[in-house]
Computed example of a mutant assay.
Amino acid sequence: MDRPDIPLNALRVFEVAVRQGSFTRAAVELRVTQAAVSHQIARLEDLLGTTLFLRTSAGLVLTDEGQALFPVLEHGFDAMARALDRIGGGHHVEVLKVGVVTTFALGWLIPRLAAFREAHPEIELRLSTHNNRVEIGREGLDMAIRFGGGRWPGIEAMALVEAPMSPLSAPSIAASLRHPDDLAQHVLLRSYRADEWPRWFEEVGAVCPPLTGPVFDSSLALAEMAARGESVALLPVAMMGRQIEEGRLVQPFGRMVSTGRYYLTHPAERAVTPAMRGFAEWLRAEMAAEAEG
């Protein structure tokens, strides 16, 4: 098969521009000017004899030709990056980039990283945290751990662990909480998932009071506010072990409600690499060991 005489740099610029969704952000990632990005895209379109982007008031929109080209290039550049990572410096190491929702990272994964490195010295795990909103391809990740119901368009999801939720507060507030109805006397902090408090009150057979407390997109922020004695937060108890052990947070009620699970996810069309498989199998084994113990 004849290989087209297309400059690799132009193809790389196109791939980054699609992931970033704009020439400006692509220029930042590539450390060049926006004009240089525009020039490379125009050159590529000229060489291919077709338009790859439509410039609209809403931003860049891929043409059919652009949509056909992008996944091929994305997979190709990912494969090259993995190969270069493995042989770089003479060490056969595969880099795995994983985005992890911050609550799970601090509450479960980070304390076990040493065990993972010991079990898989051939994998260099590079973590980045997120607030449960993550775009694997656009952020240059291989996989992501997120919380939810397990269904995301175009995503393969492996269930890890449930995270039942219960009200947590500072000891000073917990002392005044004898019955779920007592929560109505305090500020109830909310996450962006609006159904969590109503579901907990339904679980305990009580009426949910009007929810007027501030809304956060981070469980860690909720936990910090609650620990300061200013309010009560509904939190995944298993991920708050350190704060509970330190006595900063108390669980006044034993009843919990499950609103979802943590999942290990990756794009459905992406080929599973040995590092991805190794990380998934290690997580599965750790979760099984905890369930048994």
Rank of each mutant, 00 (worst) to 15 (best):
A223I: 02
L52Y: 02
T212A: 04
M225G: 04
A206G: 10
S219H: 08
A68L: 12
L73Y: 07
L73C: 04
W200P: 05
E29Q: 10
A206S: 12
L177D: 04
Y262A: 10
A119C: 08
I173M: 12
D46Y: 11
R126S: 09
F116L: 02
E224P: 09
A268P: 15
V232L: 04
R261Q: 13
P167N: 12
A206F: 02
R31F: 07
L8C: 11
F53S: 02
L183Q: 06
D78I: 00
H130Y: 02
R112Q: 10
A194F: 00
A159K: 15
P171E: 15
T212K: 02
P236E: 05
R248G: 10
G205L: 08
Y263S: 11
E94Y: 00
V16W: 05
V232F: 03
L189P: 00
L44T: 04
R261T: 14
T51C: 12
R199W: 02
G49T: 01
T102N: 12
M225F: 10
V98L: 04
P4F: 15
L106E: 15
V134K: 00
A223Q: 11
L47P: 03
Q251I: 01
A83E: 08
V204P: 01
H130C: 01
F53T: 09
M276K: 06
F23T: 09
E162S: 09
M256A: 15
R146L: 14
G205M: 03
L283Y: 11
L47D: 10
V95P: 10
V28S: 08
E124F: 08
R19V: 04
G21R: 00
P180G: 15
T259L: 01
W282P: 08
W200E: 10
D181Y: 08
Q185V: 03
L141I: 01
M276Q: 13
G154E: 01
W282R: 09
Y262Q: 04
V272A: 15
E202Q: 08
G149P: 14
H266N: 13
R193F: 07
A159I: 13
V32L: 07
D195R: 09
A10G: 10
H179T: 15
E292G: 06
M158G: 13
R261M: 11
E139S: 11
E246G: 01
D64T: 11
W200C: 02
E202A: 14
L183M: 13
M225I: 06
L211W: 03
F14T: 10
A268K: 14
S166R: 05
L113W: 03
I155N: 08
P171Q: 15
R151I: 14
P274D: 07
G293T: 11
I244P: 02
G205S: 03
L127G: 07
R25E: 09
G66C: 12
A184L: 09
E281L: 14
A223K: 02
I244M: 11
A27K: 03
I110Q: 14
S128R: 14
I6T: 15
F14H: 03
V134F: 06
A227T: 05
Q40W: 03
H179L: 10
P209V: 05
A285H: 13
A17W: 06
L48W: 08
W152S: 14
F53V: 06
G278A: 14
H186A: 05
G66A: 12
I110C: 10
F14Y: 04
R31M: 07
A163N: 02
W108Q: 07
P236I: 00
L168C: 10
V257I: 09
